[in-house]
């Protein structure tokens, strides 16, 4: 039977919980894969190698940087799950700041910390076979990917904008009809356009869509009344690698 391992790095565990949240499908999953390593769910652990590894979290310590190579070596297919693992996560905001200064402000004894200056995605360290984006990931995409791998087909993981999903589920555009700032036009689909369905602008947790036009998006956000610095903050929250957009603020 196909073996599945679930691993955690710097993260909140929310994406692992998405797997446990598959309540209706969990028994079907358990029928088809043997969960060999999943500390969030069970202390019982089987030694590797594993057919499929789901990796949550970003690399933030020297220990992480070593451990991810061991996991890669034990895994036939490695899938990163969530914004931390695929993009560095919210904690990658440190990448453009001084970690030592942060640590001195937050911790009484910062010298006890052994941390890297950056929070980086898994793919910056090892080869990754599939990436599931989002904060948290979409349950449907997780099941789609596991189901696809079990029968040997390519998982359906679109790279186009969230706008496609908004229109397909008959959401009204929050930018056009309500003047709400929204990152949907430059954000990768996959969530099912949840936030706009509740009249909230997309905040980009799935990361950039294929070939986003950042200049045009900045102009759109400005038209809703956002300032240049706010636009940069909004863009960087889940896309820490984004470069400042010039000439719009």
């Amino acid at each position: 039977m196909t073996t599945l391992a679930v691993w955690k790095f710097a993260s909140c565990d929310g994406c692992q919980l998405s797997l446990l949240d598959c309540e209706d499908e969990l028994l079907a999953v358990a029928d088809r894969v043997r969960i060999a390593h999943f500390p969030e769910a069970t202390r019982a652990t089987e030694p590797g190698p594993y057919d499929i590894s789901l990796v949550e979290g970003s690399i933030t310590t020297p220990g992480d940087a070593r451990r991810i190579h061991e996991i890669r070596a034990m895994s036939r297919i490695l899938i990163t799950i969530g914004a931390c693992a695929t993009a560095g996560g919210v904690q990658a905001l440190r990448n453009s700041a001084d970690v030592a200064e942060y640590a001195s402000v937050v911790y009484a004894r910062p010298e006890y910390l052994d941390t890297l200056a950056t929070s980086t995605p898994i793919a910056a360290h090892v080869d990754v076979d599939y990436e599931l984006h989002g904060c948290p990931i979409d349950r449907g995409q997780l099941l789609e990917t596991i189901g696809a791998l079990l029968v040997g087909r390519k998982p359906d993981l679109p790279e186009h904008s969230v706008c496609f999903e908004c229109k397909r589920r008959n959401n009204v555009c929050v930018v056009v009809a309500y003047g709400e700032p929204c990152l949907g036009p430059v954000t990768r689909a996959g969530c099912g356009a949840i936030c706009p369905a509740f009249r909230r602008g997309c905040f980009g947790c799935f990361g950039p869509a294929e070939r986003p036009n950042d200049e045009a998006e900045a102009a759109l956000l400005e038209s809703t009344g956002m300032s240049g610095p706010d636009i940069e903050r909004m863009r960087r929250l889940f896309d820490p690698g984004t470069e400042p957009v010039g000439g719009t603020s």
Binding site: H160, C173, P185, V186, N213
Partner: peptide, 14 residues
């Protein structure tokens, strides 16, 4: 046009 276009697909969907 491309400098302004988000290629978001809204035009075709509506």
């Amino acid at each position: 046009v491309a400098s302004r276009c988000l290629t978001c697909g809204n035009c075709t969907m509506v």
